[in-house]
């Protein structure tokens, strides 16, 4: 057993426990995007950062991949952690503003704007779908391709994979939205099930008076609504 302190509270965990699991055990909330129980942790979204160590040696680590160590001092909500988390959310918003998951997280962490060049990606490369496909569905139909700016997730050669059973697991776990679902091109589609692309805030009445901080908002742009009409 390993003894460590999270936010000053001592906790005893088994060897091999990650900081995220230990913090969850104590009830400290840590936001996550690319973490899912039953899938191997990946540390891609960086949202689960916590601060470890003391003084000048303190550093930020991703709690989903960092294993508990004897005597470790962990802070899950220090000002540095909060600042880093907000920045990470801003970056996610900059690349993937139409994601409901990211918008909700941003709202929950009091992120009111993002200061970067706005892009409209449909993927944050968190790899959840890849791990889902490999580890739970045992298919390995999709994976990472290319690198750097051109990195993307999909099937080899962008054609329907023989390994794919159209289980839809990848779409189910995706935090970013319409993921690989290419709906109207059946040959390239992985699932074919998800044909509903309309953003939730446009169609449903209860979202009519929703406060939207996204400017420009993809959903509004798609429907031709202007921000002032909201």
């Amino acid at each position: 057993m390993i003894n460590l302190k999270i936010n000053g509270l001592p906790v005893m965990v088994e060897e091999g426990t990650t900081l995220l699991e230990a913090a969850k055990f104590l009830g400290f909330p840590i936001p996550t995007l690319c973490y899912m129980e039953g899938l191997s942790p990946y540390g891609a979204c960086r949202l689960c950062v916590v601060e470890i160590g003391e003084g000048s040696k303190a550093k930020l680590v991703t709690s989903c991949t960092y294993l508990a160590e004897e005597g470790l001092q962990v802070r899950t909500a220090s000002s540095r952690v909060v600042r880093a988390r907000k920045m990470i959310l801003e970056l996610h918003l900059a690349s993937c503003p139409q994601s409901k998951t990211i918008q909700d997280l941003a709202a929950a962490h009091d992120v009111r704007q993002q200061r970067f060049r706005q892009e409209y990606e449909d993927c944050i490369l968190c790899g959840l779908c890849v791990r889902m496909c490999e580890e739970q569905m045992m298919a390995k139909a999709i994976g990472f391709r290319n690198r750097g700016q051109n990195r993307s997730i999909g099937t080899p050669f962008d054609i329907k994979s023989e390994q794919c059973r159209l289980c839809g697991g990848c779409i189910y776990v995706c935090p970013a939205c319409q993921l690989r679902c290419t709906y109207n091109e059946p040959d390239k589609a992985i699932c074919g099930a998800c044909a509903n692309l309309s953003p939730p805030c446009v169609e449903k009445e209860e979202f009519d008076d929703m406060m939207c901080y996204m400017d420009p908002c993809v959903a509004c742009e798609i429907t031709g609504k202007k921000n002032s009409e909201k």
């Binding site: 490999e134 390995k140 994976g143 391709r145 690198r147 099937t155 080899p156 050669f157």
Partner: peptide, 22 residues
């Protein structure tokens, strides 16, 4: 060729394709 490499190495094609495009 990539498909055959995947078959003979008994590795998923996505991995081979990932390395080949990386």
């Amino acid at each position: 060729a990539l498909t055959i490499v995947a078959e003979t190495t008994k590795r998923p094609l996505v991995d081979i394709y990932g390395v080949a495009t990386f």
